[in-house]
């Protein structure tokens, strides 16, 4: 079973996305801010990370950069999630080291497609 780390500060989004992914057979670990996200990524080595970009403590951009610089975590694929959905976000996410990008509200089938692609 694949393990996904979901880094998201909004309680409802966390609840929703984690439940839906669990239903699709993924094992989910949760983190509520960028700092915790980095810690859990290092400790638990998930197969993939879903990273909200506007996070307290350490934002998603910075957390991604840290993870991509570390030897032990740099190969973990990261999908950036953002509700801003502005022009330039995609470019910014890729530059920060994200492997893919999706907007919130999440369209679950599209996101699942991206997850599967990165995990295969």
């Amino acid at each position: 079973m694949y393990r996904i780390l979901l880094v998201e500060d909004n309680e409802m989004n966390r609840d929703m996305l984690s439940r839906r992914l669990k239903r699709k057979g993924y094992e989910i670990t949760l983190a509520v801010d960028g700092g915790e996200g980095v810690e859990k990524a290092i400790a638990e080595k998930p197969d993939l990370i879903l990273m909200d970009m506007s996070l307290p403590v350490l934002d998603g951009w910075a957390a991604t950069q840290q993870l991509k610089q570390k030897e032990e975590t740099k190969s973990i694929p990261i999908i950036a999630l953002t509700a801003h959905a502005m022009a330039g976000d995609y470019q910014k996410a890729i530059e920060a080291g994200c492997d893919d990008y999706d907007t919130k509200p999440v369209e679950i089938s599209r996101l699942l497609g991206k997850i599967e692609t990165l995990l295969s």
Binding site: M12, M16, S54, A83, H84, A85, M86, K104, P105, V106
Partner: peptide
């Protein structure tokens, strides 16, 4: 957009679930 989409997120997500 961010602030408006956050509640919409929940509305769409939970109703879909």
């Amino acid at each position: 957009r961010h602030d408006l989409r956050t509640p919409i997120n929940a509305i769409l997500g939970y109703s879909e679930m």
